[in-house]
């Protein structure tokens, strides 16, 4: 494999990794920044007996963060493997 080819693989790998990261950060911003900004509106609804805005801050966003990280790692592992950068555990 020529040096150019290796560079090309790396560029495409990095482009995909970067796009995944941007999606993750957008989701993060929604749960960490947008939800707290509209909590009063959300509090008018009820969810499991909670005021909904309060629920999102106390639990909903937290659950979202956990899910975001696990899904991100699953996708990132797939990208690593696709370009042959996957590691043996």
């Amino acid at each position: 494999m020529s040096a150019n080819n290796a560079d090309d693989v790396r560029d495409r790998y990095w482009a995909k990794t970067r796009n995944l990261t941007i999606v993750v950060l957008a989701l993060w911003a929604f749960f960490a920044l947008v939800i707290p900004a509209m909590v009063s509106t959300l509090n008018q609804f009820t969810f499991l007996g909670f005021p909904f805005g309060y629920y999102m801050i106390a639990q909903g966003s937290l659950i979202a963060f956990v899910v975001i990280i696990w899904v991100q790692n699953w996708r990132q592992d797939a990208i690593d493997d696709e370009f042959g950068f996957g590691e043996e555990e």
Partner: peptide, 21 residues
């Protein structure tokens, strides 16, 4: 009350930044 729950959101959401950046 509600205002202090920012610590809870902050101290969990930060890990998304740790993991991605």
């Amino acid at each position: 009350g509600y205002g202090y729950m920012a610590f809870i959101v902050g101290w969990t959401g930060g890990y998304v930044l740790v993991n991605s950046l």
